[in-house]
Design a protein around this nucleic acid. Structure first.
Lengths: 168, 168
DNA sequence: TGACGGTGAGTGTCTAAACACGTAATATAG
DNA sequence: CTATATTACGTGTTTAGACACTCACCGTCA
């Protein structure tokens, strides 16, 4: 069981350390999950990151969020939120508006089309999650979540995540 | 503890399901680990994927591997192994040679420089892993590895990983 | 022996990521 | 009230990822 990854990637040598094996397991598992999510989202012409943005903006509601706030809430930090939003604006999923008290800020909000897309996606996404993780019971999932939270605990003590090169 | 991710990404709503929360935890954790690895490798002018290739080829030894075999052993499958190897060949890290019985195959091997780079990297990589995961004891790491292996178990029953668009 | 399907590798092209730099608006200090 | 720093956003450019397509070689079988 614990040497499953070695077979998957046809590795001949033992892992250098348990830490390395754990890191590779995380990477491998993420690759599988992300790939299937990306495939599922492709018919809707959005990427997992764009889906992430849509959900963030839906959560923010009518007041919207500025570019940097969106960047900070992304699961995977990306160094070019501007053009990510450019593409989503062009696709009609979000609306941007400069103004308000501080004229540096550009507020981004989900559009009606964006909300409709999210609603359409909801069932599909649940199905993906069931396919990916439905074979594990709640206790196992909770345990996994707790362990991953522990993994991140060290990083969190020192920074709020990968530093983005923009605005740094 | 289990709501750590919500704070990290400043999420206001509860997660849709435990499955979703687990998937997002995996993604978030991977993003942190991958980012710090990429930063550590940057002074050596290679990416995590290139590092992965170097280790695969070192494991394969003098007989080398053909392009598709390399692609199958990567932690993260990439759809353009050819140009990945192009870049590494240009950097002097690998050698490619067409020939042998079946002249369709192109055998790739690590170069001397590639091996030297790997040797130089070894200590650095161990240090990274200690920084990332050194706060967890062996039992905890083993547990995490076992859980992630369970997560992947379902995918493995149906395919050997994300299908690559090339050669499919 | 020569047409055929399958396999291994590579190319063209578009999109996205990564990184350094630049601009505009606000805050702060003297 | 001006000079400077800081913040928020955008742009230019290089590199890598994604996907469809083509070419070369092999085995097979009529």
């Amino acid at each position: 069981m614990s040497s499953g990854l070695k077979d998957e990637i046809k590795q001949t040598r033992p892992f250098g350390s348990l830490q390395e094996e754990a890191a590779l397991n995380i990477a491998r598992t993420y690759a599988l999950l992300d790939h299937s999510l990306a495939q599922a989202l492709k018919p809707f012409d959005i990427t997992p990151t764009q889906y992430n943005v849509l959900r963030i903006l839906r959560g923010a509601g009518a007041s919207g969020l500025c570019r940097n706030e969106i960047g900070e809430r992304l699961i995977r930090r990306v160094p070019d939120v501007t053009r990510l939003l450019d593409r989503m604006e062009e696709a009609g999923l979000v609306l941007r508006e400069r103004g308000g008290a501080d004229r540096r800020y550009v507020t981004t909000r989900v559009s009606e089309d964006g909300l409709k897309l999210l609603a359409n996606l909801e069932g599909k996404i649940c199905e993906i999650h069931r396919t990916q993780l439905g074979h594990l019971d709640d206790e196992t999932l909770r345990e996994l979540i707790d362990l991953l939270t522990k993994v991140r605990a060290r990083s969190l003590r020192r920074s709020s995540g990968p530093t983005r090169t923009e605005s740094s």
